[in-house]
Protein backbone atom coordinates (compact mmCIF):
# COMPACT_ATOMS: atom_id res chain seq x y z
CA UNK A 1 0.00 0.00 0.00
CA UNK A 2 2.55 2.62 1.12
CA UNK A 3 4.97 1.37 -1.52
CA UNK A 4 2.37 2.06 -4.20
CA UNK A 5 1.84 5.62 -3.07
CA UNK A 6 5.57 6.29 -3.03
CA UNK A 7 5.86 4.99 -6.59
CA UNK A 8 3.05 7.17 -7.91
CA UNK A 9 4.51 10.21 -6.26
CA UNK A 10 7.87 9.57 -7.85
CA UNK A 11 6.32 9.35 -11.29
CA UNK A 12 4.75 12.83 -11.21
CA UNK A 13 6.77 16.07 -11.44
CA UNK A 14 8.78 17.20 -8.42
CA UNK A 15 6.59 18.93 -5.79
CA UNK A 16 8.66 22.08 -5.72
CA UNK A 17 8.89 22.93 -9.41
CA UNK A 18 7.73 26.49 -10.20
CA UNK A 19 4.87 25.21 -12.34
CA UNK A 20 3.49 23.19 -9.43
CA UNK A 21 3.79 26.13 -7.04
CA UNK A 22 2.03 28.53 -9.42
CA UNK A 23 -0.74 26.02 -9.96
CA UNK A 24 -1.14 25.51 -6.21
CA UNK A 25 -1.28 29.23 -5.58
CA UNK A 26 -3.84 29.58 -8.33
CA UNK A 27 -5.95 26.77 -6.89
CA UNK A 28 -5.71 28.17 -3.35
CA UNK A 29 -6.76 31.61 -4.56
CA UNK A 30 -9.63 30.17 -6.57
CA UNK A 31 -10.85 28.14 -3.61
CA UNK A 32 -10.63 31.15 -1.31
CA UNK A 33 -12.52 33.41 -3.72
CA UNK A 34 -15.23 30.84 -4.48
CA UNK A 35 -15.48 29.94 -0.80
CA UNK A 36 -15.98 33.56 0.21
CA UNK A 37 -18.53 34.12 -2.54
CA UNK A 38 -20.50 31.02 -1.56
CA UNK A 39 -20.34 31.91 2.14
CA UNK A 40 -21.52 35.43 1.35
CA UNK A 41 -24.32 34.14 -0.82
CA UNK A 42 -25.49 31.85 1.97
CA UNK A 43 -25.19 34.42 4.76
CA UNK A 44 -27.44 36.96 3.02
CA UNK A 45 -30.57 34.74 2.95
CA UNK A 46 -29.71 33.44 6.43
CA UNK A 47 -29.71 36.93 7.92
CA UNK A 48 -32.73 37.99 5.89
CA UNK A 49 -34.70 35.01 7.17
CA UNK A 50 -34.48 36.73 10.56
CA UNK A 51 -36.21 39.91 9.37
CA UNK A 52 -39.80 40.50 10.47
CA UNK A 53 -42.24 38.63 8.27
CA UNK A 54 -45.11 41.07 7.71
CA UNK A 55 -45.32 44.84 7.79
CA UNK A 56 -45.98 45.09 11.48
CA UNK A 57 -48.17 48.12 11.81
CA UNK A 58 -51.06 48.86 9.55
CA UNK A 59 -50.77 52.65 9.54
CA UNK A 60 -54.02 53.21 11.34
CA UNK A 61 -55.29 56.23 13.27
CA UNK A 62 -56.78 56.13 16.75
CA UNK A 63 -59.65 58.23 18.02
CA UNK A 64 -59.99 58.99 21.73
CA UNK A 65 -63.28 60.22 23.17
CA UNK A 66 -62.65 63.11 25.58
CA UNK A 67 -66.10 63.15 27.28
CA UNK A 68 -65.23 60.81 30.19
CA UNK A 69 -61.87 62.48 30.94
CA UNK A 70 -62.55 64.88 33.78
CA UNK A 71 -60.09 67.61 34.82
CA UNK A 72 -57.02 66.00 36.41
CA UNK A 73 -57.67 62.62 34.79
CA UNK A 74 -55.69 60.78 32.17
CA UNK A 75 -56.48 58.01 29.69
CA UNK A 76 -54.11 55.69 27.87
CA UNK A 77 -55.08 54.27 24.47
CA UNK A 78 -53.34 52.07 21.93
CA UNK A 79 -52.17 53.60 18.67
CA UNK A 80 -50.10 51.52 16.23
CA UNK A 81 -49.07 49.22 19.12
CA UNK A 82 -47.88 52.24 21.11
CA UNK A 83 -49.55 53.71 24.19
CA UNK A 84 -50.95 57.22 23.72
CA UNK A 85 -51.70 59.30 26.79
CA UNK A 86 -54.32 62.03 26.93
CA UNK A 87 -54.39 64.23 30.07
CA UNK A 88 -56.98 66.83 30.98
CA UNK A 89 -54.80 69.30 32.94
CA UNK A 90 -56.30 71.54 35.62
CA UNK A 91 -55.16 75.18 36.03
CA UNK A 92 -53.01 74.15 39.04
CA UNK A 93 -51.32 71.51 36.91
CA UNK A 94 -50.70 74.03 34.14
CA UNK A 95 -49.15 76.36 36.73
CA UNK A 96 -46.50 73.74 37.54
CA UNK A 97 -45.26 74.00 33.96
CA UNK A 98 -44.00 77.51 34.68
CA UNK A 99 -42.66 76.47 38.05
CA UNK A 100 -40.46 73.69 36.59
CA UNK A 101 -39.04 76.22 34.15
CA UNK A 102 -38.42 78.90 36.78
CA UNK A 103 -36.66 76.45 39.05
CA UNK A 104 -34.45 75.37 36.14
CA UNK A 105 -35.40 71.70 36.52
CA UNK A 106 -35.68 70.88 32.81
CA UNK A 107 -33.15 69.70 30.24
CA UNK A 108 -34.98 71.27 27.28
CA UNK A 109 -37.62 73.67 28.69
CA UNK A 110 -38.27 75.43 25.37
CA UNK A 111 -38.65 72.22 23.38
CA UNK A 112 -35.88 73.10 20.92
CA UNK A 113 -35.31 69.43 20.04
CA UNK A 114 -38.12 68.62 17.58
CA UNK A 115 -39.78 65.99 19.76
CA UNK A 116 -43.18 67.47 18.86
CA UNK A 117 -44.87 68.91 15.73
CA UNK A 118 -44.24 72.68 15.32
CA UNK A 119 -47.78 73.48 16.49
CA UNK A 120 -46.96 71.90 19.86
CA UNK A 121 -43.66 73.74 20.38
CA UNK A 122 -44.79 75.57 23.52
CA UNK A 123 -44.61 74.94 27.24
CA UNK A 124 -47.83 72.92 27.10
CA UNK A 125 -46.49 70.81 24.25
CA UNK A 126 -50.06 70.61 22.95
CA UNK A 127 -52.52 72.29 20.60
CA UNK A 128 -54.81 73.27 23.46
CA UNK A 129 -53.19 74.04 26.85
CA UNK A 130 -55.46 71.78 28.95
CA UNK A 131 -55.22 68.72 26.73
CA UNK A 132 -51.90 66.94 26.59
CA UNK A 133 -51.67 64.25 23.88
CA UNK A 134 -48.42 62.31 23.61
CA UNK A 135 -46.77 58.95 23.18
CA UNK A 136 -46.25 57.39 26.58
CA UNK A 137 -42.85 55.88 25.90
CA UNK A 138 -39.80 56.86 27.93
CA UNK A 139 -37.20 58.50 25.74
CA UNK A 140 -34.45 56.51 27.45
CA UNK A 141 -34.98 52.81 26.69
CA UNK A 142 -38.67 52.51 25.81
CA UNK A 143 -40.45 51.68 29.11
CA UNK A 144 -43.85 53.12 30.04
CA UNK A 145 -43.41 55.88 32.66
CA UNK A 146 -45.83 56.00 35.58
CA UNK A 147 -48.19 58.97 35.92
CA UNK A 148 -47.38 60.67 39.25
CA UNK A 149 -49.51 63.84 39.42
CA UNK A 150 -49.27 64.30 43.20
CA UNK A 151 -46.79 66.85 44.54
CA UNK A 152 -43.96 65.32 46.55
CA UNK A 153 -44.80 61.77 45.43
CA UNK A 154 -41.46 60.89 43.82
CA UNK A 155 -39.13 63.24 45.71
CA UNK A 156 -39.80 66.07 48.14
CA UNK A 157 -39.46 68.68 45.36
CA UNK A 158 -41.74 66.78 42.95
CA UNK A 159 -44.37 68.97 41.23
CA UNK A 160 -46.21 66.23 39.41
CA UNK A 161 -45.36 64.46 36.16
CA UNK A 162 -44.07 61.10 34.99
CA UNK A 163 -41.57 58.73 36.59
CA UNK A 164 -40.12 55.80 34.69
CA UNK A 165 -39.89 52.53 36.69
CA UNK A 166 -36.96 51.27 34.63
CA UNK A 167 -34.11 53.69 35.27
CA UNK A 168 -35.87 56.55 37.01
CA UNK A 169 -36.25 59.12 34.23
CA UNK A 170 -38.49 61.99 35.36
CA UNK A 171 -40.74 64.26 33.30
CA UNK A 172 -42.98 67.20 34.15
CA UNK A 173 -46.69 67.35 33.29
CA UNK A 174 -45.83 68.31 29.69
CA UNK A 175 -43.54 65.28 29.46
CA UNK A 176 -40.46 67.51 29.38
CA UNK A 177 -37.50 65.60 30.79
CA UNK A 178 -36.13 66.69 34.19
CA UNK A 179 -32.39 67.13 34.79
CA UNK A 180 -30.74 64.14 36.45
CA UNK A 181 -32.69 61.66 34.32
CA UNK A 182 -30.91 59.22 32.02
CA UNK A 183 -33.38 60.05 29.21
CA UNK A 184 -31.88 62.59 26.77
CA UNK A 185 -35.03 64.25 25.34
CA UNK A 186 -38.65 65.10 26.08
CA UNK A 187 -41.17 62.37 25.31
CA UNK A 188 -42.42 62.34 21.73
CA UNK A 189 -45.69 63.96 20.66
CA UNK A 190 -47.36 62.55 17.52
CA UNK A 191 -49.32 64.47 14.90
CA UNK A 192 -52.97 64.75 15.93
CA UNK A 193 -56.21 66.65 15.40
CA UNK A 194 -58.31 67.78 18.34
CA UNK A 195 -61.94 68.91 18.17
CA UNK A 196 -63.14 70.40 21.45
CA UNK A 197 -66.73 70.86 20.22
CA UNK A 198 -67.05 67.17 19.30
CA UNK A 199 -64.90 66.16 22.28
CA UNK A 200 -62.45 63.93 20.43
CA UNK A 201 -58.79 63.52 19.51
CA UNK A 202 -57.58 61.72 16.39
CA UNK A 203 -53.96 60.62 16.44
CA UNK A 204 -52.92 60.51 12.80
CA UNK A 205 -49.25 59.73 12.38
CA UNK A 206 -45.80 59.87 13.92
CA UNK A 207 -44.07 63.24 13.77
CA UNK A 208 -41.12 62.18 11.60
CA UNK A 209 -38.39 64.21 13.37
CA UNK A 210 -39.33 62.96 16.84
CA UNK A 211 -37.13 60.30 18.40
CA UNK A 212 -39.24 57.77 20.27
CA UNK A 213 -36.54 56.03 22.36
Amino acid sequence: MTEDIKNTQKSIEPQTSPAVITRRRFLTAMTAVTGTAVAGAVVVPMVQSLEPTAAASALATTTVDLTPIEPGMQVTAMWQEKPIIVINRTPEMLATLDETMQKGLLKDPNCTVPQQPPYCKNKYRSRIPEWYVGIRICNHLCCIPHYRPKKGSVAPWWLGGFHCPCHGSMYDLSCRVIKGSPAPHNMAVPEYEIDIAKKKVVVTHMYPLAHLC
Partner: peptide
Protein backbone atom coordinates in the same frame (compact mmCIF):
# COMPACT_ATOMS: atom_id res chain seq x y z
CA UNK B 1 -47.48 46.58 26.28
CA UNK B 2 -49.34 49.36 28.13
CA UNK B 3 -47.91 48.90 31.59
CA UNK B 4 -44.45 48.63 33.12
CA UNK B 5 -44.79 47.42 36.71
CA UNK B 6 -43.26 49.49 39.54
CA UNK B 7 -40.34 47.19 40.22
CA UNK B 8 -38.92 46.20 36.87
CA UNK B 9 -35.45 45.43 38.09
CA UNK B 10 -33.13 42.86 36.56
CA UNK B 11 -32.18 39.64 38.37
CA UNK B 12 -29.75 40.19 41.25
CA UNK B 13 -26.76 38.93 39.29
CA UNK B 14 -27.11 41.64 36.65
CA UNK B 15 -28.28 44.44 38.89
CA UNK B 16 -24.82 45.90 39.72
CA UNK B 17 -24.42 46.79 36.05
CA UNK B 18 -27.97 48.06 35.89
CA UNK B 19 -27.29 50.34 38.87
CA UNK B 20 -24.28 51.72 37.01
CA UNK B 21 -26.36 52.30 33.86
CA UNK B 22 -28.87 54.43 35.70
CA UNK B 23 -26.38 56.22 37.94
CA UNK B 24 -25.35 58.47 35.02
CA UNK B 25 -27.96 61.14 34.15
Amino acid sequence: ALKSLPDVTPPWYLSPFYAMLRSIP
